[in-house]
Amino acid sequence: MNQSEPIIRFCGIEKRYGAFTALKSVNLEIFKGELFGFLGPNGAGKTTLIRILTGIIQPSGGQIFIGPYDLFSQPDKAKAMLGYVPDRPYLYEKLTPLEYFEFMGGLYNVALERILSKGEEMLRMFDLWDRRNELIESFSHGMKQKVAMCAAILHDPEIFVVDEPTVGLDPRSVKLAKNFFKQLVANGKTVFLTTHTLSVAQDLCHRLAIIRQGDIVALGTMNELQKRASMSDSNLEDVFLKITEEELEQQTNIL
């Protein structure tokens, strides 16, 4: 991990929906080769931040740099560095997995040979090779999630952005996914993930951020978060609950 080289920089990212503020000036740096976990209770703003990072929605203010590129002024170059797996794997249902890979690969200008070889490798890894000629519409949630994961890696992105990667996956697939992320990081890639499965975050992530009501309330390694919560021997679940409850109390006191 190269701590000196941020590959993602969030600079004052805000998102408002009318009177409601989903993100309050988020500033965050993710470093190259890092496996970064982004945690928070429901409705805290995790998915909103990820959707802004992947260019799906526009922020109300702020900037994001992906590598040397400004996401909003050079979206094509910035987005080419990202591979994204959403929390709900809505895919083109009338295509087979291989046809879906061809479609996604084409959008990222990937050579057909690479799509086919990488696609086969990934489908075999996730035990979907035998179902390569079936339409995606017949797949379960977990299978679709795996197809989305395979498609996100086809263009060999520098950064892998994953929203709730373990939802709907069976235990074997969860293990496969975790190993897959570790392998990516070992190969010098960066992984930015959100999850509610705190054991997965604790197992995998080098650094973690906790967001609450649109604000980042804690940031650091597992040890740093334990210190921040004054719970040196506790697991991430206890630390998470302590920090988020503390924050809530503080806000209530202020009010």
Binding site: L82, P86, M104
Partner: peptide, 14 residues
């Protein structure tokens, strides 16, 4: 394009 439109929006294609 349906709900799968995220795939296009998150890609480098404008």
């Amino acid at each position: 394009e349906g709900r799968a439109f995220w795939a296009v929006k998150s890609s480098p294609v404008s």
